[in-house]
Nucleic acid binder design. Structure first.
Length: 902
RNA sequence: GGAGGUAUAGCUCAGUUGGUUUAGAGCGUUUGGUUUACACCCAAAAGGUCAUAGGUUCGAAUCCUAUUAUCUCCACCA
């Protein structure tokens, strides 16, 4: 059998993913095993896989695959989110391109278009996740707007309403006067625009020539003024307490009020208050009980209430009013000014603040519950400092009621029904609404009812996700097995929008669904741990985004480096919670990101390294004879080193330090296994290896593949299949996670000393232009330390083999040709004919001597401090003493060497 | 304006409750290599006053305070 020189990731990845799917390895149904559950943060149904998804889903896959290897019932539920605003915007845009206006369509017609579009283009991202190797149970794929999930949303809305948590109220919203609709915050784009700041003077009522000057960018709204506000501590205006001012043009008298909101530094320090047309003015108006005078109609033109310029557009009215104010002597000055103007994403119209009726969810008790859940440790955050941000958001001062209504069609329609005569009922169905309305003898019919036009906020469906994916609101059977989920993996940017709200929902409903006993036993939190990933940024620290073009094409990356290579690349640079700098270079011409990455290249090279280690082993003929001492040492060492490494990896997993875990494995496999172990046991060319040593080697390789499998599933599966003859269900994917064992730190340290000894001989060869293969003699200064060190089984033989020596001998001579060096605490001489550059040699040794002396001085200072010896743990003191004696031994060696150098 | 994070080698980052760390890895750089597994490789080297200034401690990259830089979220810019 001959294996090609390079590993073909493309072919292997496709083959194995199909195999896993065919064998149902990712399928999960409740059984007697311990469950390990993750629900995917549902990506936007119309989205494509970007770097953030890759990071996020690779992490989830690592966790779920590890759990599967540990024999747990691993269940990873995939799905997509309907993302109401983004998707509706896309559909509206698409329809517009076809010449269809949303306003010409009925709700039903629009929804048909939207669903058709979703069916055609939606879900691409799920296929892309499969390319990445995501081991989701695809039979469980859910969508936040599918009928069952929508039903749950409606049920929950009604429940909250009946419990008194939901109310309807007026709220300042962003009004698009062209589309004549309310916009969500996300649909408003703010840019700095040049405008003018008008300083307008108002006459104080009851005076002839006393004025108060305000600054405004919108003089036309003067017609809707209800007050003038100044800061309560502003001495310039203190005398105006209780006075009134006269609004120019209309001549209305308005109070002068004092409010801390006013910035004394800005303009004149006096602010005109127009509660109907400004968010802040509205709040001031509420505090001071001011009249709300709405002077604009739905299209942004002035209405009757304005008295002047009626029917004129606000922009035209602005210029006209400025002209008129000037003519009447009210304009003090006009400045050029740059301010932040919000425009509609859809129509580019300047957004007008407007009061509209919205639905709200009271947050106070929910917020307290969600905060307590994390503070008392029922939910743990990783990294833990994320709790600070969470606390800050959920503190009562910062919590605002959640506006759950959105002026959109793509979403669950709010289950509120109105009658023409102003009655309202909230119910899951129209029939139930009728029943409520007719309870006291009414006689409304279905024709009398009009359902609320708005849809609920997308988050109002996603907050149920961990319960809804198990159809908990219809039948809690599966919930009882899988809930609470083990971990949620998500970005910290949606901590408040999503994470906190899922916790709220979990505490609100899962207790009832699970029943009191189970709820007590398992808890009602939706997940035990939350692992916050960082944002993926480019090498200029900008958030990767489509519009910037700074995100590499994820599919291209996987094509180039293999899914395993990309998984390695993205994981290795992502410590929990820290932002991820993904170093993809830019094309200088276009400024676009190239689909290249050094990190992914490292991952691909790693796959190739593994592949070649396999090729090496497969090429070895075997013989039936007892293992050599070198091979016995190699096996003993790697076995213990494996145990040590496994322990460190387990530790990293416990705290979700996945990048640490994968790097540890990388270093162990590449460095210890390939560069040292395999080189140690490698037979001479075309010579056989002992069967027992080969068997040990294959065992090691197998265990390593299982450890690496969660990170790089395809290559490990491929290698697994070549290592031995396999049954069809005997795959790396469902192999068994290895258990650790004992290791002797002293022994491992000895081997490290051996490694540095060998490295020193290579360094000396290189410095002296000696060929690596040229065999030389090595002499070690005879002494107890050297005798003990070299007495270790196989040690001397391994040094001879790995350092290309002809012999390793003890010496007592002080003077040697060749080059001396220290390894551990022993003095060695690599022997060869050499003219020694005494000056250079002395300089090098003296440098080292000085370093060591400083080192010793520090330790001596420490040890001479009684408080250290008394206060520090005994083990620490002992370690310091060892450091001291080793250091002193080395100093002595160097001083001897210096003495001998003439 | 409110809040939070980050600052360690040229770059990207580790450094887990302060103590075998006068500090590690990968990439990059330099040097050597036609070693029959791998040049997607092998061997080796150089490179850091741990942002700055104080403090706590027997001991600080690690804890505290201030400063500076930088990033993010929330609110807003009359």
């Amino acid at each position: 059998m001959s294996l090609p020189k390079h590993y073909d990731a493309q072919a292997a990845e496709k083959k194995w993913y199909q195999y896993w799917m065919d064998k149902g390895f990712f399928r999960s149904t409740p059984d007697e095993r311990e469950p390990y559950t993750i629900v995917i943060p549902p990506p936007n149904v119309t989205g494509v896989l970007h770097m953030g998804h890759m990071l996020n889903n690779t992490i989830q896959d690592v966790l779920i695959r590890k759990a599967r290897l540990e024999g747990k019932n691993a269940c990873w539920v995939p799905g997509t989110d309907h993302a109401s605003i983004a998707t509706e915007a896309k559909v509206v845009k698409l329809l517009r391109e076809k010449g269809i206006k949303k306003s010409d369509l009925s709700r039903e017609e629009f929804m048909q278009h939207a669903f058709a579009w979703k069916d055609k283009y939606g879900g691409i991202i799920l296929e892309q996740l499969q390319t990445l190797g995501a081991s989701c149970d695809w039979e469980r794929t859910r969508f936040t707007m599918e009928p069952k999930l929508s039903k749950a949303v409606i049920k929950v809305f009604v429940d909250l309403y009946n419990k008194g948590h939901i109310y309807r109220g007026l709220r300042m919203t962003n009004w698009d006067p062209v589309a004549k609709t309310v916009l969500s915050n996300e649909e408003v784009i703010y840019t700095n625009e040049n405008s003018k700041l008008y300083h307008v003077r108002y006459r104080i009522a009851g005076t002839e020539n006393e004025w108060l000057t305000i600054a405004t960018t919108r003089p036309e709204t003067i017609l809707g003024d209800s007050a003038i506000a100044v800061h309560p501590e502003d001495e310039r205006y203190a005398h105006l307490a209780g006075k009134k001012a006269i609004v120019p043009l209309v001549g209305r008298e308005i109070p002068i009020i004092f409010d801390k909101y006013v910035d004394m530094e800005f303009g004149t320090g006096a602010l005109k208050v127009t509660p109907a047309h400004d968010m802040n003015d509205n709040e001031i108006g509420e505090r001071h009980n001011l009249k709300v005078i709405d002077i604009l109609d739905d299209s942004g033109a002035l209405n009757e209430a304005a008295q002047f310029y009626v029917g004129m557009d606000r922009a035209v009215a602005r210029k006209q009013s400025a002209k008129d104010l000037k003519a009447q002597g009210h304009i003090v000055k006009i400045e050029n000014y740059t301010n932040n103007v919000g425009r509609s994403e859809r129509t580019n119209a300047v957004v007008e603040p407007k009061l509209t009726e919205q639905w709200f969810l009271k947050m106070d008790t929910f917020a307290a519950t969600a905060l307590a859940a994390v503070e008392n440790g029922e939910v743990d955050f990783f990294p833990p400092q994320m709790l600070n941000m969470y606390r800050n958001w959920l503190t009562p001062d910062n919590v605002r009621d959640w506006c759950v209504s959105r002026q959109l069609w793509w979403g669950q329609q709010i289950p509120a029904y109105y009658t023409a005569d102003g009655k309202m009922a909230v119910a899951e169905t129209q029939e139930e609404a009728l029943a409520i309305l007719n309870k006291d003898g009414g006689s409304y019919t279905a024709e009398d009812l009009k359902q609320d036009e708005d849809a609920v906020d997308t988050w109002f469906s996603s907050w149920l996700w961990p319960m809804a994916v198990f159809d908990a609101f219809e039948d809690p059977t599966e919930l009882k097995y899988y809930y609470p989920t083990n971990v949620l993996v998500t970005g910290w940017d949606i901590m408040f929008f999503w994470v906190a709200r899922m916790i709220m929902a979990g505490y609100e409903w899962s207790g009832d669904l699970l029943g009191p006993e189970l709820a007590k036993e398992k808890g009602v939190h939706p997940f035990k741990d939350v692992y916050f990933t960082g944002m993926v940024r480019d090498n200029k620290r900008r958030k990767m985004s489509k519009s910037l073009g700074n995100s590499p094409d994820s599919m291209e990356l996987m094509k180039k480096y293999g899914a395993d290579g990309v998984r390695y690349g993205i994981l290795s640079c992502s410590a929990a919670g820290n932002d991820v700098i993904f170093d993809a270079p830019f094309d200088k011409k276009s400024g676009k990101s190239l689909s290249e990455s050094k990190l992914c290249e490292t991952g691909r090279n790693f796959s190739n390294k593994l592949w070649n280690a396999l090729r090496l082993i497969k090429g070895w003929p075997t013989k039936d004879s007892p293992p050599s001492t070198v091979n016995r040492l190699a096996v003993k060492w790697l076995d213990q080193k494996f145990n040590e490494t496994l322990e460190s990896i387990e530790q990293s997993f416990k705290t979700y330090r996945l990048s640490e875990a994968v790097k540890t494995l990388y270093n162990f496999i590449w460095g210890d296994f390939c560069s040292w172990y395999l080189e140690m046991v490698k037979p001479d060319y075309q010579q056989p290896i002992e069967e027992t040593t080969l068997e040990h080697t294959i065992n090691f390789f197998e265990k390593l593949m299982t450890l690496l499998h969660p990170f790089m599933p395809h290559i490990t599966e491929e290698i697994w299949s070549h290592l031995r003859e396999r049954e069809e269900m005997d795959r790396c994917t469902n192999s068994t996670w290895p258990t650790g064992g004992e290791y002797d730190e002293g022994f491992l340290y000895k081997v490290e000393t051996m490694k540095s000894l060998i490295a020193s001989t290579r360094d000396i060869r290189k410095r002296n232009q000696l060929k690596d293969k040229e065999t030389l003699d090595l002499a070690v200064q005879d002494g107890e330390g050297a005798r003990i060190f070299l007495a270790e089984m196989g040690m001397a033989e391994t040094i001879v083999k790995m350092a290309y020596l002809s012999s390793l001998t003890y010496t007592t001579e002080a003077d040697h040709e060749g080059q001396g060096f220290i390894a551990g605490t022993e003095q060695y001489y690599l022997l060869f004919e050499k003219t020694i550059d005494v000056a250079a040699e002395r300089e090098k040794l003296e440098k080292e001597l000085n370093r060591l002396k400083g080192f010793i001085k520090g330790i001596e200072k420490k040890l001479s401090n009684e408080r250290f010896v008394a206060g520090a743990p005994a083990a620490v003191v002992e370690k310091e003493r060892k450091k001291l004696s080793d250091g002193k031994a080395k100093i002595e060696l160097i001083e001897n060497e210096l003495f001998n150098l003439k």
